[in-house]
């Protein structure tokens, strides 16, 4: 496993553990679900809040962009 792959896996694990860790009693369930979705998206290779990077990657890979606004 090369170093970037290790980094990606560790990052995903950390993000997931953050997302699944107990939240404050006042946190609505939807916020927790959002955190889980954040983690899963990032682990799946989603870019985070970086449209210029998405445009550059789409140009390079000749793929369309799926931008999720929330």
């Amino acid at each position: 496993m090369n170093s970037s792959r290790v980094f990606a896996v560790v990052s995903a694990a950390v993000l997931l553990s953050m997302a699944l860790s107990p939240t404050n009693a006042g946190d609505p369930a939807s916020e927790k679900k959002d955190k889980v979705n954040d983690a899963v998206e990032l682990a799946a290779g989603w870019l985070y809040d970086d449209l210029p990077a998405a445009l550059a990657r789409a140009r390079k890979e000749n793929k369309p962009i799926f931008a999720a606004f929330r």
């Binding site: 954040d38 998206e41 799946a44 989603w46 870019l47 809040d49 890979e61 369309p64 799926f66 606004f69």
Partner: peptide, 15 residues
Amino acid sequence: AKDFVCVRVIQMRGI
């Protein structure tokens, strides 16, 4: 989603 470049946009500043 694998056929797209996916990006999560969290706010509208600069959009």
